[in-house]
Design a protein around this nucleic acid. Sequence first.
DNA 1: TTTT
DNA 2: TTTT
Lengths: 154, 154, 154, 154
Amino acid sequence: MGKSVNKVILLGNVGKDPEIRATAGGTMVANFSLATTDRVKDQGGNWSDRTEWHNLVAFQRTAEIIRDYVKKGSKLYVEGKIQTRSWDDKQTGEKKYRTEIIINDLSLLSGRGEEGGGGGYTRAASTSSFDQRSSAPTEDYGQSAEITDDDIPF
Amino acid sequence: MGKSVNKVILLGNVGKDPEIRATAGGTMVANFSLATTDRVKDQGGNWSDRTEWHNLVAFQRTAEIIRDYVKKGSKLYVEGKIQTRSWDDKQTGEKKYRTEIIINDLSLLSGRGEEGGGGGYTRAASTSSFDQRSSAPTEDYGQSAEITDDDIPF
Amino acid sequence: MGKSVNKVILLGNVGKDPEIRATAGGTMVANFSLATTDRVKDQGGNWSDRTEWHNLVAFQRTAEIIRDYVKKGSKLYVEGKIQTRSWDDKQTGEKKYRTEIIINDLSLLSGRGEEGGGGGYTRAASTSSFDQRSSAPTEDYGQSAEITDDDIPF
Amino acid sequence: MGKSVNKVILLGNVGKDPEIRATAGGTMVANFSLATTDRVKDQGGNWSDRTEWHNLVAFQRTAEIIRDYVKKGSKLYVEGKIQTRSWDDKQTGEKKYRTEIIINDLSLLSGRGEEGGGGGYTRAASTSSFDQRSSAPTEDYGQSAEITDDDIPF
DNA sequence: TTTT
DNA sequence: TTTT
């Protein structure tokens, strides 16, 4: 039949310091919210910003990275999937839903203030780096490779 | 500061025929659910499928395309963004949330039964098609371009 | 510092039957081309289609799946990363480049003719499926959850 | 038939100050290279970094943004599509290929040194911001909404 | 609750 | 050519 795809890409800012817990079974869990902001036209036709808050969840090793490096205000790139959990509210007996993004991969782009533009989580920087190409491809194409109006795709 | 990113990519099957409406202001709206299925390990360590239902919403021209071509069972590729709306429940007075995917782009991959593997919505098939290259690039590289163990990135 | 991201998403049709090989080291490799088609405005201001051919490469288990299920004409969803290899042309002594998409994940959306709209590679369909919700969320929200003009994000 | 998809997502660092030109037809064009770095296992089984250089191209308004805000060292998030141009080399008569990423959308994440962690290109910050939800969803779910081992998707 |  |  072919697999399905459920993929989310977010780039935004963390709203609060993450909450770190462990389940009864001992799995590390990190919970936090991430804001993305959209420019939208409101009813009056004016542009304004609309902030969307996403509930993010990470497990195990990723949860540990979040515990160690992610704070309120951190700018984050996240890849994940959408998952909606449901339960019956004890008070009202109603079914309730909560949609969360389960993080598969993340990249810390910056933190607040003291962290400046860096301070990431990459463990044990590698010592050797091998590029297969010695020179930049930018240099090595002739006159004929220049983009002309014919190449413009619109 | 840099913009934020809120992007969703889904590939799955439509749960029911879409509901098509217009708002009071006359904007066409399409609502439907899309299932994606994940292979997960359950508590017993066995693999099983977990189906996730996503609430999709489309507006205007995209809503019309959905009205005309999308049915229960259709396989769809969708690009969109996550949006959570909230309101106060009239009965209980509680705040309720509903997370939806606002569709930006979609591709109909197949319908049910009679539509076989085709029958999409692309309007007015183009008559001319210009490929810049006449043959598949697969052919045109020499012996030295073959992948060797050194090229394997793992 | 934060990791970087190199991600490609393609949905298109396979140009020829894949070539399957093994490296000297015994790693299975699959090579094939995939076409995606863009609608672009040409110099005369007319809309036309521009087909882009991508060089895809897969290794190991993914290469085996491709060997078994992917054919000329197959419609495929692919996730991967961009990689450019280079070598010195034996004839001219020039540096040559070849950009390829290394497949990380794929979904077979249909095959040619006889396969109709299905016949994928998912092994051993699962017998149990647990949805946390029994019905489509589309049903279960009240009047107040309906989208109004105020909810439209443009 | 359904449309195809050709989408690239990159997050990396700019290798040199962009080159800004205009075509004969007056279209603004920006060219630059972006590095992404992958952690790969080499032949000896050791982890090392492999840097991939991508050729990026932007047109019109996006080219102007790049001219004004993107520099050598800038960290960038980019969305685009893959395009391979070809031409006949005047010297050797051989067919040559150059694969480029045509930028559709970008987000400046930071520059070097003096730019600190900000200084983006978003024009005319909006004055009003309307969130539909007054309080964080993080707070407002009961005990039963907590993630347990049953909720963990692996 | 974030960020500019 | 970048970045840590």
